[in-house]
Write a protein that binds this DNA or RNA. Structure first.
Lengths: 193, 193
DNA sequence: GGAGAATGTAAGCAGTGCACACATGGAAGG
DNA sequence: CCTTCCATGTGTGCACTGCTTACATTCTCC
């Protein structure tokens, strides 16, 4: 780790990531700008390019952090959900994370990602693994490969529809109820044959 | 309708919408730029502002068009789906629309929308109504209010996960199979009580 | 202590959204 | 017919963006 002086920052990479997170949390709608990050870190506009070759690289790094936090958040909601009610609780946690960190969540999913970013791929995989385990426990009879995608998609779709204003997301408790109800209804759905 | 001259375009509004659509189809990843639209329409950079007070208004208008096309596309896939297989076919059509028009689909959902735009609200409502009817037919026993959101979210989530590269979307037929399988697995899911 | 790599700065280019003042010409009223 | 008004176009300019290139400073290692 280099030392901090008037000229050399010391740990600009971490400072950029922190600044980026702060900016995303402060303005959930504005796009993340490289120059704004530099300003917040108290450094020249082009300094961040020493640590992130392009904007996308910074966004990918922030997104990877977001994936880790989302995984923790889901684990905190329930470490090993196995029943419909527990699954619904995790779904509520997923949607709440998206609504509480809209810009971060968009950076994680909507921004173009370089598939080569290993940190990011690993972080995504952690979430996928959590969902796969959940599905194996909750649906012992089903094909886990087919079902875990469906479960993730259901929850992810609810998150984005709320985030993008297609479903009413104004009241916290109402959103939670809505998500719970939707998930339980889907699990109980008995189609006509 | 004003007349077309060397100075006055004639129907710049429609020309802007057409140009915007072309740009979105040509480069599915680039953001839509007001100036690029103006260039394509053969007009000065600020001329489109006479018809769209801001960028968001143009995007909203294009998005509304997209909603109408998506609705048609779903109707073409099946006018009145009622069985799991028919529902799965509609799901495949939804995801395919997203993958065939990635930039348009993003404009429809990911871009900030002004909730006041009536054209856009009406177009969204058409899709919601289609899904609601579908659910009523396919799941006569269920609570339609709870379930239609879940069905939309499931399909919408599959679309975005594929669009954002979280699920492999490289081969057309593989995507279709994957979506069909996921939807059918979800409908057949029998959770542990 | 000197060389070279790492990490910062400064200046500049092309692109963007948008506000403003100005130009053009079609349509309505005298 | 001719003026006047106004919708619709142009031109200019500002603040911002990502990113490149050249230069400055300092850390590290021999």
């Amino acid at each position: 780790m280099p030392q901090a002086t008037a000229y050399h920052h010391g740990d600009l990479r971490a400072a950029c990531l922190r600044a980026a997170r702060e900016l995303l949390e402060e303005d959930g709608s504005a796009a993340l700008s490289m120059r704004a990050v530099a300003r917040r870190a108290g450094v020249s506009p082009t300094a961040p390019y020493r640590h992130f070759p392009e904007r996308e690289a910074l966004v990918s790094a922030v997104a990877a952090e977001g994936y880790r936090e989302l995984a923790e958040h889901l684990l905190a909601a329930h470490p090993s959900p196995a029943t419909p009610n527990e699954l619904a609780a995790v779904a509520v946690a997923y949607v709440r994370f998206a609504l509480d960190h809209p810009a971060l969540f968009r950076a994680m999913f909507a921004e173009p990602c370089d598939p080569g970013n290993e940190e990011r791929a690993a972080a995504t995989e952690a979430i996928a693994a959590y969902v796969r385990d959940l599905v194996r426990r909750a649906f012992p009879g089903a094909d886990p490969d087919a079902l875990w995608t469906a479960v993730w998609a259901l929850v992810h779709g609810l998150a984005f529809l709320h985030l993008d204003g297609k479903l009413d997301a104004s009241a916290h408790e109402a959103v939670a109820d809505q998500v719970r109800t939707a998930v339980l209804a889907m699990l109980a759905a008995a189609p006509v044959s």
